[in-house]
């Protein structure tokens, strides 16, 4: 920390009331743009509660987003925030993290933003194992642009660009991330907010690339065209479909069809984190120059 700057903790009175997530919100920017019943706020709140638990400092935390309803979250967050361009949040975040390894860097992205247009950046970010935490809001559609199909719409799903039913399979995003090299992979839902908060918190403390898929509801665009209709029904559906990893372990693929496997799915601490390896390389070069 540069001289003259002080941490947030120092600025606040020490016997403060227990903080709420408002601490990290630009409440003056409200009302937010999200529709009633949308799950994006729920997921964002889970992230903010994880941030509170960890006591993330506003000036040392940078939250980067792409473009989409989900990515709009950064417009309300009181951290250093970058609302970048569609699909490229991870590339921006890579520059930020490599330039300043001491920052906590979080990426918020959607299923279109992160898995379609930004898919290439996603797999490479996983491979590099930079200490960035990515939260992918999966609402199975392009909400912002009006309900077009996303890679996560799923076989038989309806979208404005799939009026007769989508005929492409989806990614299993968590398996994709794991295969690409992410060292922390987890999935939660906007129904299971406690679990989601914990998964995000552990992802942030994990020293390496963390990928958390947050399955959530878009009643306005996805829900309008796909059963069940209505936010409450969609949430109940999430509750019914979600199944913990432990339980899923004993089940056959047929039994797992249509279920959402949640919890910590993969963790590997043996892979070197990129900023750390880079620092070691600089050190090696410096030493050999001194000799």
């Amino acid at each position: 920390m540069a001289e003259g700057e002080s941490s947030v903790a120092e600025q606040e009175p020490s016997v403060a009331e227990p903080r709420t997530i408002d601490h990290y919100l630009h409440t003056d920017r409200f009302p937010h743009i999200w529709c009633p019943g949308c799950g994006l706020g729920t997921v964002t709140a889970a992230f903010l509660r994880a941030a509170l638990e960890l006591g993330l400092e506003k000036d040392r935390t940078v939250v980067v987003a792409g473009i989409g309803c989900s990515s709009r979250a950064v417009g309300y967050l009181d951290f250093g925030t970058v609302h970048s361009i569609h699909g490229r949040a991870l590339a921006f975040a890579t520059g930020i993290k490599m330039a300043h390894p001491e920052f906590t860097v979080i990426v918020l992205t959607g299923d279109g933003d992160g898995a379609a247009i930004g898919g290439n950046h996603l797999i490479h970010a996983c491979r590099r194992n930079l200490d960035i935490t990515t939260i992918l809001f999966n609402n199975n559609t392009y909400g912002m642009t009006g309900g077009q199909a996303s890679p996560q719409t799923g076989m038989g799903g309806y979208a404005t660009t799939a009026p007769f039913g989508f005929d492409e399979p989806s990614f299993d995003l968590c398996r994709l991330a794991e295969a690409a090299g992410a060292t922390y992979v987890a999935r939660g839902t906007s129904y299971g907010v406690r679990q989601l908060q914990k998964l995000i918190r552990d992802g942030i403390t994990h020293p390496g690339f963390s990928f958390i898929e947050a399955v959530t509801q878009c009643p306005t665009e996805y829900g309008k065209r796909n059963p069940p209709k209505g936010p409450v029904q969609m949430l109940e559906n999430l509750k019914e479909k979600a199944i913990s990893r432990k339980k899923a372990e004993g089940m056959t693929p047929e039994e797992l069809e249509g279920r959402i496997v949640t919890g910590l799915l993969h963790r590997d601490e043996s892979v070197p984190e990129l900023t750390a390896s880079y620092a070691r390389m600089l050190e090696r070069i410096r030493k050999s120059a001194d000799e």
Partner: peptide, 26 residues
Amino acid sequence: PAVGGVFMQMEDEIASICACIGASLT
């Protein structure tokens, strides 16, 4: 690296300029 800087080969040119902008913002 010899002057303590960061060099990255990115996955494409989009990522390259975005990483540069990200670094620039810091």
